[in-house]
Every structure is written in structure tokens, then in C-alpha cells.
Design a binder for these strands. Structure first.
Lengths: 199, 199
DNA sequence: TTTTTTTCTTAACCTGGGTTAAGTGATTTC
DNA sequence: GAAATCACTTAACCCAGGTTAAGAAAAAAA
């Protein structure tokens, strides 16, 4: 199975031409900063030990970001999808080795950019910077809320809350990964779902 | 039962005269900034709604700091004892109403000082400032570690860890308060203790 | 297709800790 | 010193989720 199309998915073009209002020349300059990377399902974009000198815009597909905890269990942190940025944030900013795995759940089209180029673009296109900051701020508050939920809510409550807030996740992410994200065993998630559907 | 002695406990004098090396004049200046407060067992030093414009050095006794959570349960945050500083930190720095209860578990001798006087002292005695910062830093990392333990460890593990790290707590603090601190029901703590003693 | 692998579900069993209720000492209080 | 309150323990019961094991269904590979 080949996953390389000849042109990148139009989402990226639409975002920058229509939404941000870049003209052809500006858009080409922008595009030239990115390298298109196709990541096949189950392959990794980032693995622990490497150093992230780039980040990537998810133009198509979805992934899972996870760490291995002290007891050797995978713990899924989030499911990056279209319009997210992916990188091991710690490594990207500190220059230390990455600790996260970032693995494709679907075949993905990523648009990768180096730190330097991104910084340059931010300065050239102020609106990009603003957009990026808002995005990251939302992500941070989302993560904090989720940590709080893991601390205070029961598995069942977390499942119900996820269905209510992010039903789209259930369309694309395998249940076993959702279970890990909710910090439940897959069997328990199955049982929960049955219990809750036959109300 | 009267709890007012005529002189404050020598701990305070020893700390500042011997440890910090203040002479008689300096010590008297220092002492004049503090007001001695005797808090009787079960009475409160701070209650929610008030605004903390002072903090207090615990010269003798021990207390419990707690909040009431969404479900109406007491949640004990820590047990201030000799050589701690107590205040609703949030209220002290923000000027907003306190949210914590700070209640005496034993009859306490507190040395209270206003924000202004404390600031003045910090500037006059650099070593005091240094000492205070180290103390607060340790407290903060301790709190973070505890939050982490509440998130990741089982009740039994938390109990064992507390015995190992702070056995002195068990000499002074009622078990029901320790249970609350560990986020366990008192009955469950009892059961745990029995299970663990008859190895 | 058929086969193999992956994902999801079901069932039986177990365990830790919450809940309820009662009992036993200790301390206070009067 | 009797009565009341407080601190702690014990016991019985319950239930959510983990664990183990097996099966069913779906997807991928051949």
C-alpha cells in the first residue's frame, strides 16, 4: 500500500490562503518552510531518546502520544488529530531527549518545520503567532483539566465525560487506546459500555 | 484550664539568638514585631472568608490545615507543627478571602506578625529571608510530592509511605485526621493497620 | 477466498476500600 | 464519680474495577 499522494491535502492551503489570507507568493514562501512527511499507521513520528528540533502540523490523520510509566504500562496522553501540532514539547524547548512516543493511529500527513523556520514565520506573520499561542493555551488548560479528572473522577465518570465532550474520538480511536487514555483496562471499558447502553 | 504561660516558649529565643546570632537589642526589636497568640485545642487560627494580613510562626503545638471539598468532606492538607509558618497562603498573597481552615490539634503558641513587619524584618535580617525561602521551597516540593502520591499510590501504599517518612505524626495526630490526610475512611485505616501489624 | 492477526467482548473470580452499624475504651465535662 | 462525648476498632456487606481466560468479530494479509 502506497500512501504518498502527489499533492498535499487541501486543508493546509485553505487554512493559510483563505483563513489567514496569504497571497500566492506568501503562501509559497510559507510552504517552502515545511517538509511533508507521510507516517504510515503504527509507525512513529517521535520516539524517546531522540531530540525534537522540529514540530509538525497534522494536516491529515490521527496519532497517539504516550509514555511508558514506572510499571511499564503505556499511558496515553492525547490523540493529536487534524489541526494539532505534534512534537515532544519538553524536548523541543529544552533540547533534552524526548520521553514521549508519538505514533500514527491512521496514515498521517504531517507538515514538518524546523524551530528556526517556525520562529522566522512567527515574526513574518504575526497572525500565525497569535493563532499558535491560542491553540497552545487551549491545549494546556485542557491537559490540566484532564489531570484533575484523573485525580478526582471514577473511571465511569471519566468515560461519560469523554463521550459528552469528545464523541468524535470514538469514531476514530480504537477502544483499547481510549481505555488507556481513561486509565481503565480495556475489559473494564467494555463492561462499562455494556452497562451504560442497556440503561 | 488556663493555657497562658507568662513567658513564651524558649524555642523562639534560641532560634533567633543562638542560631541566627542576634544580640539582645536586635532580638528585642525582632520580638517587638510579633504578637504572641495562644490558640486552644480545637479553636481556629484561620477560617474561610477572612483575609490573612498576618502569618504566624508555630513555636509550640500542632494544627491541621484543611478545606471542605465539593462533596462537603474535610480534606486535610497538612499538619503544621513547631517551626512551621501558618497562614492561608493564597489569601496572604492575593488579598482574597481565605479558603482554608487552620485549627489547633494541641494547645498552640503562635507568634504572629503582620505582612509589613515581616517584610521589614526580611530586609533587616537577610539570613531570615534566606531561611524562610528555603523553608517554603521545601514545603512546596513536599506538597507536590504528596499530590503525586494521592494520584498514583493506593491507600495502603500511602499509609506505609507516611509511616516510613513521618512516623512522628503518629505520636501527635489523631488517627482520624491522619486518615483524612491520606484520603481514606477512618475505618479503612483501622483495618489497614490491623492487617499490617499482624504481618 | 482462506488464514492470520488484531480488536473487542464476555464471563468468572478476586480484592480493596467505602458504607453502615455497633461496640469499646478514653477523655471531658459537669 | 457519673454522664456525655470523643476516638478508635470490629464486623458484615457491597460494589467497582482489576485479572485471567476464552471467545467472537472485524480487519489485514496472503
Amino acid at each position: 500500500m502506497s500512501i504518498e499522494p502527489h499533492i498535499i491535502d487541501p486543508k493546509f492551503t485553505i487554512l493559510f490562503k483563505d483563513t489567514f489570507g496569504l497571497n500566492e507568493k506568501e503562501f509559497n514562501m510559507l510552504l517552502s518552510c515545511f517538509e511533508v512527511k507521510y507516517i504510515r499507521k503504527k509507525d512513529f513520528y517521535v520516539k524517546p531518546g531522540t531530540i525534537c528540533r522540529h514540530k509538525a502540523y497534522v494536516n491529515k490523520g490521527c496519532l497517539r502520544t504516550y509514555v511508558i510509566d514506572e510499571k511499564g504500562h503505556e499511558r496515553i496522553l492525547f490523540f493529536p488529530m487534524e489541526d494539532w501540532w505534534v512534537a515532544d514539547i519538553d524536548s523541543y524547548y529544552s533540547g533534552h531527549a524526548a520521553t514521549n512516543y508519538i505514533q500514527a493511529i491512521e496514515n498521517c500527513e504531517l507538515l514538518e518545520i524546523s524551530k528556526e523556520d517556525f520562529q522566522m514565520l512567527e515574526n513574518t506573520i504575526p497572525r500565525l503567532k497569535q493563532w499558535y499561542i491560542v491553540k497552545m493555551t487551549r491545549r494546556a488548560t485542557g491537559s490540566a483539566r484532564r489531570m484533575e479528572e484523573l485525580r478526582t473522577m471514577t473511571p465511569q465518570e471519566r468515560y461519560v465525560s469523554l463521550i459528552e465532550k469528545s464523541p468524535e474520538i470514538f469514531d476514530r480511536i480504537p477502544l483499547q487506546d481510549i481505555a488507556s487514555y481513561l486509565n481503565i483496562e480495556p475489559q473494564s471499558l467494555s463492561r462499562l459500555r455494556r452497562k451504560l447502553t442497556k440503561h
